[in-house]
């Protein structure tokens, strides 16, 4: 996978019906592409966090952020600098694993700290949680064995604790 111009937006929204459709609709309406998206409630049941990875230059990113801010249910948007945040993603993959390569695959899984979650006659299902880069590497190596099915969750991220993440201004929000 080539290195895209990734920007991670962490969008705190009111946990209400239709909010995801509103966010997704805005991206479609304005012609922006979502690279990955993960959404779930936060520690506060009133709020959900949507982690959106977009693949754009700086200028359209500024427009995306401003347009997102205009959605009434969007409470806060932070742009997370990848070097100052922790990112995690989950991957599960079913890989062809005949008797002759099964040992190699288990060894590979051990090296990556992946788990074998299901075993079939000639296939294995593996899961790996970690940084998106690590998942990229793992996926690359699995490809050689023949991937039957693969699913990734899209990344979730939070600012690192040691240094403050770059947070886009919350003031001046909405209109």
């Amino acid at each position: 996978m080539s290195k895209p111009r990734h920007h991670i937006l962490s969008v705190l929204v009111q946990n209400k019906a239709g909010v995801l459709a509103r966010v997704a609709g805005l991206f479609a309406r304005r012609g922006y592409n979502i690279f990955s998206l993960a959404v779930a409630p936060t520690e506060d049941p009133e709020l959900s966090r949507i982690t959106i990875v977009v693949d754009v230059e700086e200028t359209p990113l500024e427009q995306i952020v401003k347009q997102l801010f205009k959605l009434i249910e969007v409470v806060r948007i932070s742009e997370l600098d990848p070097s100052r945040s922790v990112e995690r993603e989950l991957l599960i993959a079913t890989v062809r694993a005949g008797a002759e390569v099964r040992g190699q695959l288990v060894e590979l899984a051990n090296i990556f700290d992946a788990k074998v979650v299901a075993v079939g006659v000639d296939a294995l299902t593996l899961s790996l949680e970690g940084s998106p880069d690590k998942l990229d590497d793992f996926e690359e190596l699995l490809r050689g064995y023949g991937i039957v099915e693969l699913q990734r969750t899209g990344r979730i991220a939070l600012p690192k604790l040691d240094r403050e993440a770059r947070v886009r201004a919350v003031k001046g929000k909405a209109s």
Binding site: V13, Q14, L71, I72, E73, V74, V75, R76, K171, G172, K173, A174, S175
Partner: peptide, 8 residues
Amino acid sequence: SLPGYKPN
């Protein structure tokens, strides 16, 4: 009820 709506 509108925590995200504060026009400047």
